[in-house]
Design a binder for these strands. Structure first.
Length: 768
DNA sequence: GTAGGGTTAG
């Protein structure tokens, strides 16, 4: 609407100008209006005073310019001599008028009053001034700009490069991309310089017009291009390609790598920051090949590469566990004299630690700051590097050494341990079950003024929970809360999990409520934990309730949660409920996995419905899932329960021959237990041999089943042999073992024989 | 650079 309105106004103006246009041209005026600053004489001190006077007259006599002789005199000097002031002045005056409305009115005034009409190109700078005014005008600069553009076209006034750039940018920012493109295309080709192309590139890329952008870029990148790209072009292009919310089509890594090479041929390279970000982005998208190529292109084309970019690639390669290429890159850094920094070493040490190669990590650590040895430069470790190592040590149970490193960082590098340092050590001691040491460290950090954070809290709470000290954990948590350290979802997960595991479901539910009341919003893991805990405890109604709450909160149940619920319903013999879950799963697009099938196979076979169990197994295979050792275990167990040992043994044999799923200890235990109960101890013993043969380790359950069977037959010799074997294999007897053997051996007066077993156990217990 | 959970056969 604005445009139409503007157009009608414009055409009337056009008529006006044309009707009053004299037929001859006054060279003096022409010169006044000239766009070429070089043709205009340098501004004298007079200029500004005249301009000020003109502007003042224009501003103060808003409605009566036509009757203002003074104004006319200043603008159009009667003596007809070339007035140097004028040419440069018109844009200046226009700028100072402040609004486009006034400026346009002034423009009309000039058109009407000029003794001779200006050549259209000479008005270009004045329009430039008006565009500048327009784009500052609110609320709608765009309609003003469009109106001006329309007017300038009507008058055949060409755009200056500045006007065009401004228009391209403003239209682009408003999302009027086609209008931006049009302005550019209609611009005199000699003016289509690198700068405006950069602005257009930015506009196109930001709006997702990737192909248009690449097309223009392609033209710029031609070897003989008149306006080749510059440093800004490369930054604009790659910053845009890095944008996360990039609309339009995505640019493949091949294209990105290709662009870098082409820029490289113009001796242009992305900045260190840009290159590093590109590499990071590619690596995160799983395109480390592209990242590798990118970095190497820049190196080979002679662009400068710094450690940061290499670090980005090293991180990506590390994520993919591509140690070989990590090593190659490190070698190349050395060859190209790219000095590794503390982060480079941090990446290396971190990866070594994550793969439990702590000794190698320590070696690298020693070398990096060892001076001379590492090619004349040495890198001082910082707190992060120390923390990485301390964590690595703590994770493999070498927390005492970690403690030593903390002392070293203080004394050798005057590097103060921080919260993370303490957290890593506290975690190490917690994992080792040394909760007291962890507490000591916690007190120490408080004394030193190192503030504990929620991770400190969670590490201690989790450690106590894992070691069965739930009450201490609760106490500690409450204590911390009083001191102002609030827990988060992780804290509650640890506690809820611990209460579920210790059969205190009500307390777990209570904590969940407490968490909500404390304003701590539960995440998916808290829900999963609770659903699992409730299902396993047989509280399926509660579990379903939590699941519905979870869905209300916008989370989805995953396959494991569905399996937990289905398993729970099956155990409760609520098959219809299990089916409901299966249906829901399907609707949610969650595919059943091997565990789902195993759960159902177990349910059917345990209820004696072997036909259906086998049918489900068939379906499992048809759906591309291979039966697992658990599948066979479920069937074998169920056949054993109904004393169909033949069928159980048939499946067992079938496992190693046709199915190639090697039986494990559990499978042997089921069979050995059943055989012993059926007084078939010989076959059970032969299965023991079979285990030895196949390298399957018997465990306490295996021995217990055997002892029970042997006791029934009173085969003492065999039992004593197995007792020795148990000690040899460092297999712990449990209370069932002791019960069977104590009863049996005391009855036959052989209690002495129990000694070895008990002693062996004590050795093991002390080691643990 | 540091913290949390869960499924199926004995």
């Amino acid at each position: 609407m604005n445009v139409t309105h503007a157009a009608s106004k414009q055409s009337s103006l056009l008529r006006l100008v044309k009707s009053e246009a004299p037929t001859t041209c006054h060279t003096a005026i022409l010169r006044h209006f000239s766009a070429e600053p070089n043709l205009a004489p340098p501004p004298s001190t007079d200029d500004s005073s005249v301009i000020t006077e003109v502007v003042s007259l224009l501003q103060n006599n808003d409605n009566d310019w036509n009757n203002n002789d003074k104004l006319r005199q200043l603008l159009f000097p009667s003596n007809n001599s070339p007035h140097s002031l004028y040419a440069v002045s018109l844009p200046k005056i226009t700028r100072r008028l402040g609004t486009t409305t006034k400026a346009l009115k002034f423009f009309e005034y000039i058109q009407a009053n000029s003794p001779s009409p200006p050549e259209p190109p000479s008005l270009s700078p004045t329009f430039e001034a008006m565009y500048e005014l327009a784009c500052r005008e609110q609320p709608n600069p765009l309609s003003k700009l469009s109106e001006l553009l329309y007017k300038s076209k009507d008058h055949n006034i060409p755009l200056t490069i500045n006007s065009a750039t401004l228009l391209v940018r403003c239209f682009g920012q408003a999302g009027m991309i086609d209008k931006s493109l049009l302005v550019y295309k209609e611009l005199d080709p000699v003016l289509q310089n690198t700068h405006i192309r950069n602005v257009l590139l930015d506009v196109l890329l930001r709006s997702g017009r990737v192909d248009d952008a690449l097309q223009m870029l392609d033209e710029m990148l031609k070897p003989d291009a008149e306006f080749p790209p510059n440093e800004n072009s490369i930054d604009i292009v790659f910053t845009a390609l890095l944008k996360r919310d990039q609309s339009g089509r995505s640019v493949s890594e091949e294209e990105i790598v290709g662009l870098v090479s082409k820029f490289g041929e113009h001796d242009l390279f992305p900045s260190v920051v840009c290159l590093t970000q590109l590499i990071t982005k590619l690596c995160r998208r799983g395109k480390s090949n592209g990242a590798w190529e990118l970095l190497h292109d820049v190196i080979n084309l002679g662009g400068g590469v710094e450690a940061a970019s290499c670090n980005a690639l090293l991180t990506g390669l590390g994520r993919e566990r591509d140690f070989q290429r990590m090593n190659t890159l490190l070698k190349e850094m050395k060859e190209k004299d790219i000095h590794p920094n503390v982060i480079t070493f941090g990446i290396l040490i971190n990866h070594l630690c994550k793969f439990h190669r702590v000794d190698e990590a320590l070696e690298v650590f020693e070398k990096m700051s060892g001076g001379g040895e590492s090619d004349g430069f040495s890198v001082e470790p910082d707190v992060i590097l120390y923390n990485t190592l301390i964590d690595g040590l703590s994770k493999v149970g070498r927390q005492e050494e970690g403690l030593g490193l903390m002392e070293q960082m203080r004394s050798k590098h005057h590097c103060a341990p921080n919260t993370v340092t303490y957290n890593c050590l506290i975690d190490g001691f917690c994992k080792a079950g040394e909760i007291e040491r962890s507490h000591e460290l916690f007190n120490q950090m408080n004394r030193e003024g190192v503030p504990p954070n929620v991770i400190t809290l969670n590490t201690l709470v989790g450690g106590m929970c894992r070691h069965g000290r739930i009450n201490s954990a609760m106490e500690f948590f409450n204590d911390m809360q009083r001191k102002g350290l609030k827990g988060n979802a992780v804290t509650y997960t640890a506690l809820i999990n611990a209460f579920c595991n210790s059969n205190n479901i009500n307390k777990a539910m209570e904590l969940f409520d407490e968490m909500m009341k404390a304003g701590c919003s539960p995440d998916a893991i808290v829900y999963y934990t609770l659903i699992s805990g409730l299902s396993l405890a047989g509280r399926l109604d509660d579990a379903s309730f939590v699941a519905s709450k979870m869905k209300e909160a916008g989370f989805c149940l995953d396959i494991v949660s569905y399996n937990v619920l289905i398993g729970g319903f099956c155990r409760k013999n609520k098959f219809d409920k299990a089916c409901e879950m299966l249906k829901e799963m399907e609707q949610a697009g969650v595919n059943p996995d091997a565990v789902t099938y195993n759960t159902l196979i177990s349910y059917f076979s345990n209820s004696g419905n072997f036909t259906t169990a086998h049918r489900v197994m068939r379906q499992m295979i048809d759906n591309g899932l291979m039966p697992t050792v658990v599948t066979y275990g479920a069937l074998i167990h169920a056949y054993c329960l109904v004393d169909n040992l033949d069928e159980a043994m048939k499946i067992f044999r079938d496992m190693s021959t046709t199915s190639r799923v090697p039986p494990n200890t559990v499978i042997y235990n089921i069979l050995i237990d059943t055989l012993c109960k059926n007084k078939n101890v010989e076959v059970a013993l032969s299965l023991m041999d079979d285990m030895k043969h196949k390298g399957v380790r018997p465990n306490t359950t295996t021995y217990n089943a055997m002892f029970k069977g042997l006791q029934g037959k009173n085969w003492l010799e065999k039992a004593l042999k197995l007792m020795d074997q148990m000690t040899e294999q460092a297999c712990n007897p449990d209370y069932i073992t002791m019960e069977i053997l104590t009863e049996w051996l005391s009855a036959v007066g052989e209690t002495e024989k129990l000694k070895n077993l008990v002693q062996g156990y004590e050795v093991l217990a002390s080691k643990a």
